[in-house]
Design a protein around this nucleic acid. Structure first.
Length: 508
DNA sequence: CTAGGGTTAG
């Protein structure tokens, strides 16, 4: 871009600017290229007296992929006001610049008016844009269109997926006459976006077995997502070796997806190895690693990595601070947590979200500072949700603040009357204080409201077999060994003066 | 003379 500006300046100096063809090429590069400069393109564009359709299209395209696609529409409107005729290249980007259902419909009118409603490119753009707002309309356009190709089919799939209609999407996927890597990718990532992780992995296995297509990067990213959601470490590790064997680079998306996958499976070392190998790291990559260290209990490493991130001049965002604050939370670092909470808004201008408040309430509550936590909640700019009150109640439970706990617990139950865990927490608090009449009243309320406690369960995958454990579950073939191990661990914790350690952690 | 659509991380 720097070189281009120099060339452009020389052209102006030499009077070559009247060679409109070259100016057009420069304009197009600035507007469209990934390392271009849309503002600069706009300045060139504004000085052209009679822009050609090529110039107009370049500007519309540039804006349509920018942060303000609406400007693309206003360029299109200006173009029409100057009575310039659009061509087939104009519409895909004018459509992409639409921000709502009504603007799509208006552009659709223009498409019909100029007779481009048979063009596959234009039609699939329309289907894609309609499906973001109303997949029914997208379907109508699709059904009416005589020229369908793999792209229009794929647009319809992602449309259904965006609307949460995965079953419909799958029907379309099964019906389509031919599929390419993007269609597979759209269907698999659609499953993942709708939390249908198992279906995503099944479809991925089908793709592998058919061996028609090599999974592309976006498929791999989506599958890693699914593996992360399921804790399917075997499948994810397979993907990792596939990535290495096939020479895929640890780019931002794929690298971050790998980091996140390992983090969610609790393999902090593997995730750190991938992270360290990533040649370029952006906010998301740093955040994934920091959050990962934090949720796996490596508070010090998480905070050290945050310091490193600051040194690398990568600007942290709201998610980064979720990681930083939860690191403080897991490490019991109350004062540091407060400091970071202030740094977040004062230094980085990030206003705390409900998640950040959740971390702080949790942190204060666990440290026994329930009054401070309550004060923080009262000062929140947004309405506290169940997570916030739950964190406070948990603090009350740990530190025996029965009056506040009771108040919060009752409030929480009214806020989420069908959430069994809230009743259980309150009942546990009564039980811990020996207030059995309280326990009985909570149990009674649950019975009357027909709220049943969902037993907590956890999964672990060992050599491809998933083992499931419920509370007090003795059905597993090795359950005697499991309970013996638990008992040994419990005794070890008791004898190693665990409480003193906790108090030190909280006071540090 | 130049150019167009669908998938992709925290």
């Amino acid at each position: 871009m720097k070189e281009l500006r120099q060339i452009h300046a020389q052209m102006i100096a030499l009077g070559l600017i009247r060679y409109t063809y070259i100016t057009s090429r420069i304009l197009a590069f600035c507007a469209i290229s990934k390392n271009g400069d849309l503002e600069y393109a706009r300045r060139i564009f504004d000085r052209i007296q009679m822009p050609t359709i090529f110039n107009w299209n370049a500007m519309i395209k540039g804006y349509s992929r920018s942060a303000q696609p609406q400007f693309g529409l206003s360029i299109f409107a200006r173009m029409r006001a100057e009575l310039v005729l659009p061509n087939m290249h104009t519409f895909p980007f004018a459509i992409k610049a639409c921000d709502g259902l009504s603007s799509v419909a208006q552009i659709h009118g223009q498409v019909v008016k100029f007779g481009f409603d048979l063009d596959v490119y234009v039609v699939s753009s329309l289907i894609n844009m309609y499906s973001k707002h109303d997949v029914g309309v997208a379907r109508q356009v699709f059904d009416k269109s005589p020229n369908k190709n793999v792209v229009s089919w794929t647009s319809l799939i992602s449309g259904y997926c965006v609307q949460g209609q995965v079953v419909e999407a799958r029907k379309v996927f099964d019906e389509m006459p031919e599929r390419n890597d993007v269609s597979w990718s759209a269907m698999i990532s659609g499953y993942v976006q709708n939390e249908c992780h198992t279906e995503a992995i099944e479809l991925f296995r089908e793709l592998k077995e058919r061996a028609l297509l090599r999974p592309n990067r976006s498929v791999l990213v989506s599958i890693l997502n699914a593996c992360a959601g399921l804790g399917a470490s075997e499948e994810g590790r397979w993907v990792h070796s596939y990535i290495d064997e096939n020479g895929f680079e640890y780019g931002l998306e794929l690298g971050t997806a790998l980091v996140d996958f390992y983090v969610k499976c609790g393999c902090v070392e593997s995730s750190r190895q991938v992270f360290d190998k990533m040649p370029i790291k952006d906010v998301m990559a740093w955040s994934a690693m920091i959050v990962g260290l934090a949720i796996n209990g490596h508070s010090d490493s998480a905070l050290a990595l945050f310091a490193e991130m600051e040194r690398s001049k990568t600007k942290p965002n709201a998610i980064t601070f979720v990681g930083v604050l939860s690191a403080c939370n897991h490490g019991g670092l109350v004062y540091k947590g407060w400091d970071y909470f202030k740094v977040m808004s004062n230094v980085y201008g990030i206003s705390p979200s409900i998640e950040h408040y959740g971390c702080m309430v949790d942190l204060l509550g666990r440290a026994g500072r329930v009054a401070d936590a309550e004060q923080l909640i009262n000062g929140m700019p947004m309405r506290p949700d169940g997570v916030i009150w739950g964190a406070l109640l948990n603090g009350c439970l740990i530190h025996g603040h029965v009056e506040l706990g009771e108040r919060v617990g009752r409030r929480l139950i009214e806020l989420e009357p069908h959430h069994s865990g809230r009743y259980v927490l309150l009942a546990n608090m009564y039980a811990s204080m020996g207030r059995w009449e309280g326990v009985v009243s909570v149990r009674k309320m649950m019975r009357e409201r027909r709220v049943t406690a969902v037993p907590g369960c956890s999964f672990i995958e060992i050599t491809g077999v998933v083992h499931r454990f419920l509370v007090d579950d003795k059905s597993h073939s090795k359950s005697a060994d499991v309970f013996k191990m638990l008992n040994d661990l419990h005794n070890e914790v008791i004898s190693s003066n665990y409480e003193t350690m906790m108090v030190q952690a909280i006071l540090s």
